[in-house]
């Protein structure tokens, strides 16, 4: 059987908030190392990869590899029934056709359980090679969300250009042109507010705003976001999930025709 108990249940709630606009259904692949999910959005332009390591759960049992296909809209509705401070347990029998979510209040006075049907999804998995990116930018997640939100008003694409001076986000459209330049922060008292850039070579790529906006739904998960870029390869936008995993979004660039 499979059973995973997460005391910080709100992390799982936030993960679903991070996925539900992009994916309607996906499979959670469970093994003794933890839970993983990889799925492309319907247009195959973006991909989400989630990892929740077993050691991040305060109880984790997975007798046999299990792949649970779920409708994420339904799963999100169920997780919304959990309070932010609830302990969340996910349970399923081997070869099960349903999964149970248990929400316990911290004082154990209230226990709710919701059973959801599982789906048979045979989704394609992509092989993502380990990449040494030309530029890796770390910045406050809220800052990135604000930049994308502001520039989305100007056009449907954002050009992200990284040089040794810093990183520039640009968008152009009918109403005009917007440019936002972020310099690498010298010294900050709080690590989370820093903008750091590790650059091996300058890189400039163009991406669709609508996907970047959907990625920033994960801002609730982590104070920082990491952008990894290399010429002619998809962008990687990563948010940590506590110290137990991550949500990684991959977005194919737009190429000048």
């Amino acid at each position: 059987m499979f059973e995973a108990r997460l005391v910080q249940g709100n992390l799982l709630k936030k993960v679903l908030e991070s996925l539900k606009d992009l994916l309607t259904e996906a499979s959670w692949d469970c093994a003794d190392t933890g839970i993983q999910l990889q799925a492309m959005d319907n247009s195959h332009v973006s991909l989400v990869s989630v990892q929740l390591r077993a050691d991040g759960f305060d109880k984790f049992r997975c007798d046999r590899q299990l792949s649970m296909g779920m409708n994420l809209t339904s799963m999100s509705k169920i997780l919304r029934c959990a309070a932010n401070d609830d302990i969340i347990t996910i349970k399923a029998q081997d070869q099960a056709d349903n999964v149970t979510f248990v929400f316990e209040s911290p004082n154990q006075e209230k226990v709710a359980d919701y059973e959801m049907k599982l789906m048979n999804l045979d989704q394609e998995h992509l092989g993502i090679p380990e990449t040494d990116y030309a530029a890796v930018i770390k910045l406050p997640a809220a800052e990135f969300q604000r930049i994308i939100k502001d520039l989305s008003q100007f056009g449907e694409s954002v050009v992200i250009s990284c040089t040794k001076e810093g990183v520039k986000f640009s968008a152009a459209g009918d109403i005009g042109v917007g440019n936002i330049k972020l310099a690498q922060t010298a010294s900050v008292d709080k690590e989370e507010e820093a903008v750091t850039i590790e650059m091996q070579e300058p890189v400039t790529l163009t991406f669709a705003c609508r996907y970047l906006n959907m990625f920033t739904k994960a801002t609730c998960l982590a104070p920082q976001v990491t952008l990894s870029m290399s010429p002619e390869v998809p962008l990687v936008v990563e948010y940590k999930i506590g110290d137990m995993g991550h949500v990684r979004y991959y977005l194919a660039p737009k190429i000048e025709d």
């Binding site: 492309m40 163009t206 190429i255 000048e256």
Partner: peptide, 14 residues
């Protein structure tokens, strides 16, 4: 205007 690529042009299906 720039053309959107598909992820499968970059990553192989496993």
């Amino acid at each position: 205007t720039p053309i959107q690529n598909d992820l499968k042009e970059f990553y192989a299906i496993m």
